[in-house]
Computed example of a mutant assay.
Amino acid sequence: MSSIRQVQVTFDCAEPERVARFWCEVLGYAVPAPPEGFETWADYERSLPPERQGAGFVAVDPTGVGPRLYFQRVPEGKVVKNRVHLDVRVGTGLVGEERLAALEVECERLIALGAVRERVLLADEYEESCIGMQDIEGNEFCLD
């Protein structure tokens, strides 16, 4: 019998710490403690060679349930739609207008953090409503 594997979700981005802190706010995640021997992440970053400073950052679920998120600096910008995206589940158990209202409230909160609203997909006979959005570097995600 094979065992379950834990996953890490990795984001390619230009500014890892900035994007990680955005997703911490979105998901209620936290920045873990800096490596042993360092009082702050800034202290740790200063200990790295210049080309490695700011190259990566981490966000974790403080309950230990959700996947670790890793943000890595890449030289190229985003040019096409993501093939994989996160669905941020805020309307679970809600339907119709009540669901859409909950999604709109969360959408406004995330816009204040720098997210961009793309479009609302209204419920049909198969799916409930959701809102397509982009994070602060243009990565698509859905409020679901």
Rank of each mutant, 00 (worst) to 15 (best):
D135Y: 01
R21W: 07
A55M: 14
A14K: 14
Q72M: 13
G54P: 03
C142L: 14
R46H: 12
F38V: 08
C130K: 12
E127D: 12
E45R: 14
Q8V: 14
E104T: 14
Q53I: 10
E36V: 09
V79K: 14
E36A: 15
R99T: 00
Q8W: 11
Q72E: 11
R73L: 08
A59E: 04
A55N: 13
R119A: 15
E108I: 05
V19K: 08
F22M: 06
E125T: 11
L103E: 00
P67N: 04
D43T: 07
G77L: 07
P50N: 09
G37K: 04
G64N: 07
P49N: 12
V26N: 00
S3E: 09
V79T: 15
R89M: 15
A59Y: 02
P16T: 07
L48N: 10
G132A: 14
A102Q: 05
I4K: 11
Y44W: 15
G66L: 00
G66N: 01
R73M: 09
D135C: 03
D61S: 10
V105L: 13
N139I: 02
A20L: 06
C142T: 10
G64W: 02
T40Q: 07
A55P: 05
S2M: 11
L143Q: 06
Q134A: 12
G138W: 03
V105D: 14
P49F: 09
L48Q: 15
G132V: 14
V105Q: 14
E137I: 06
E128V: 08
P16R: 03
M1H: 09
C142Q: 11
V105I: 13
P35H: 02
G96L: 04
T92W: 13
